[in-house]
């Protein structure tokens, strides 16, 4: 069973394609890092999965059902702007969101809020810090008892302590219920430690999609003399070159030729390699 499937999904805003021809599947139980630079299409993709935006082309399904302008009952969505009623207290907001749901657990929300240090139940939502608002929004998302959590930049406005608290809450939900999580961030370092699956988006397109360990095992970084590049076989993703030395990121590399050093890339350098390649495709003039 897949929690979420995209088939050739595209979204055009007037003349600009925010997302184009995206196809991927998120298996159930995964914690997915949806990464990419600002404006890559991460938010649009999540909003389409939440039924807020209709795809221009293709189709998105959550738990096998096409998303048709309506969020799946098993899916919860955290919007990037958090979209909470700021003039209500936390307690009233919990009641309000509960009233808007068929399946709801106030106990779950209170349990989560109880784990979070900075949230006063009787404070107006508008008076809370941005981080505390994010935490309230995540608690409310969990109140729907979701099987898939779509979180748009969940960590962007959290201080280190709140970040740790929040990740603990989300990961505990994964441990207890096998919840699938898709978290977006433009900072890979935010998600590196907690995710087991990566979906790298740039320029509206999927660049990398797969289990992090498998993706890493599939790639090699080869360092060797510039003159000898033809000896290397495999799919070249990107390269950086100095006068004498080439550093190549390869997928499905053949055995390393003599004179080349071979290492498994770390996730950061792999992502950087793909992003560099995507930039180069967009503006070939700048290619060196």
């Amino acid at each position: 069973m897949t929690a979420m499937t995209a088939t050739a999904v595209g979204k055009r805003y007037r003349t600009r394609w925010a997302v184009r021809d995206c196809s991927f599947a998120v298996p159930e139980g995964k914690v997915v890092a949806l990464v990419g630079p600002n404006g890559a299409g991460k938010s649009t993709l999540l909003r389409m999965a939440a039924g807020l935006v209709r795809p221009t082309t293709g189709e998105l399904r959550t738990f096998g059902t096409p998303v048709d302008g309506r969020i799946h009952p098993d899916v919860s969505f955290l919007a990037q702007n958090r979209s909470l009623y700021r003039d209500l207290t936390v307690r009233e907001l919990t009641r309000a969101v509960g009233a808007m749901n068929d399946r709801w657990s106030t106990d779950r929300v209170e349990e989560v809020l109880g784990l979070l240090a900075g949230v006063d139940h009787d404070a107006k939502v508008g008076t809370l810090s941005a981080g505390a608002r994010t935490q309230v929004a995540i608690a409310l998302a969990l109140g729907r008892l979701p099987r898939l959590l779509l979180l748009d930049e969940p960590l962007s406005d959290l201080d280190p302590l709140a970040r740790d608290e929040t990740l603990r809450v989300i990961m505990t939900d994964v441990a207890d219920h096998g919840t699938t999580v898709v978290m977006s961030s433009h900072l890979l370092s935010d998600l590196r430690e907690v995710c087991d699956h990566i979906l790298l988006i740039d320029d509206g397109r999927v660049q990398v999609d797969g289990d992090i360990e498998e993706v890493l095992a599939e790639h090699r970084v080869l360092v060797g003399p510039v003159a000898d590049e033809s000896a290397v076989a495999g799919t070249l993703i990107s390269a950086t070159r100095t006068e004498r030395q080439s550093t190549l990121l390869l997928r499905k590399a053949e055995p390393t030729p003599a004179g080349w050093a071979d290492t498994e890339p770390d996730l950061e350098s792999l992502v950087m390699g793909y992003l560099r390649a995507s930039r180069d495709r967009r503006s070939p003039a700048r290619r060196r």
Partner: peptide
């Protein structure tokens, strides 16, 4: 997870 906030799948 409660102690370290890592991914339980890991």
């Amino acid at each position: 997870v409660e102690a370290t906030a890592v991914n339980p799948n890991t």
